[in-house]
Amino acid sequence: MKWIGAFIAMWYRQVKQFLRAKPRLIGTFLHPIFWLLFFGIGFAGAFREGMSQAIFMGLSYLEFFLPGIAMMGVFTGAFMSGISVIWDKEFGYLKVVLVSPASRKASILGRIIGDSTIVVFQSVVLLLLGYLLVPSMNLINIPLYICIAFLVSISFAGIGVTIATKMQTIEGFQLIVNIITLPLMFLSGIFYPIHVAPDWIQPIILANPLTYGVDAARFVLVGKSYFNILLDIALLGVLSMILIFLTMYQFEKATIG
């Protein structure tokens, strides 16, 4: 049970550090809120009563958009969490972890779950605020939403951390993240229903794990989805398991120099 200590240490470190860094805290909170308010409300106004229902699976645009934007926060936040690995590499904290007898697998797992805790928590707060705009949301299903969000977060944090252990600079990491994030974000059914996209884009949408996270979140929160919720969850579950093991394995091998 020795690995528990390393897991808790790193989990605590991620969460504590995040809560301390006020500007980042506020920034990551505000970002999805702005999307919801200034994009969501504006866009909702573009569709007259009844018109949006025809396009957005029988939902108003805000009903459609809210679960998606919550997932977007989870996705981008989790992806960016790799930054702290590079940060630690640059400022030496990684050495502190590597020089300890603690399980490296447990420490990186603690880190990923720590980051996931934060981004999932933030997205729940966003949902609660969003409830004011979308009173038809199923609040009772929030625990289910949390599970789904965790699977998505773990998957993408795993990808982020794996990329980060290979990268030398924060700029390089940011470049890669930017290149990957935007297509994945726009091709996931967050902003528009996936069936309206042209055929040649469909494979990308279907290959994008985020698509299933958004679909599942939409199902539990506002009751509409393309795929069977069980399929969504099974896919996300398998993916997150694979990614987390890959990440742990890859980090285990990491030594400096």
Binding site: G5, M10, Y12, V97
Partner: peptide, 12 residues
């Protein structure tokens, strides 16, 4: 907090 995290890392 720095000390606590380090201690947990070492199993204390």
């Amino acid at each position: 907090e720095n000390m606590w995290i380090h201690g947990r890392l070492y199993g204390l």
